[in-house]
């Protein structure tokens, strides 16, 4: 049975690219538009890995990760954040919030999949 990845990003373009890269690699993809939507989706899904952007309206990546870690059902789900190269501070912040790892934007589909495989059981 293929793994389920939840991607959370407010950019339609990014969501499309994530979906393309992940489904090509054989993953089942579930998507959300921002942090609030992500938490709503999590009410009904148990993804194997979550990939989330940081800058989003309503609830940003940090808030979302904290929300996920605060939920008993999902606190052990690996979360990867999408971040730009120069954002060392953001990476640190995401990790403090509970992120498992990160993926650099713009992402290389192969690296994305490798990062997912690295954190997914």
């Amino acid at each position: 049975m293929s793994k389920t990845i939840l991607t959370v990003d407010d950019s339609r373009t990014m969501r499309d690219m994530l979906r393309l890269a992940l489904s090509d690699a054989g993953f089942r993809v579930v998507q959300a538009d921002d942090g609030v939507h992500g938490l709503e989706v999590l009410a009904g899904e148990t993804p194997d890995v979550i990939v989330t952007d940081i800058n989003m309206p309503r609830l940003d990546g940090f808030g979302f990760i904290e929300g996920v870690r605060g939920d008993d059902r999902h606190r052990a789900v690996p979360i990867l954040v999408l971040t730009t190269e120069s954002d060392a501070a953001k990476k640190e912040r995401a990790r403090r919030a509970g992120a498992t790892g990160w993926i650099i934007k713009p992402f290389d589909p192969a690296k994305l999949v490798a990062a997912i495989r690295r954190v997914a059981a």
């Binding site: 407010d10 950019s11 373009t13 990014m14 989003m56 309206p57 934007k105 713009p106």
Partner: peptide
């Protein structure tokens, strides 16, 4: 603050996609 955040995100988004 949400207004200026939205403005930031708009440019950030464009940059992200453009990079890809």
């Amino acid at each position: 603050p949400e207004t200026v955040n939205a403005v930031f995100r708009a440019v950030h988004s464009i940059k992200g996609g453009a990079g890809a």
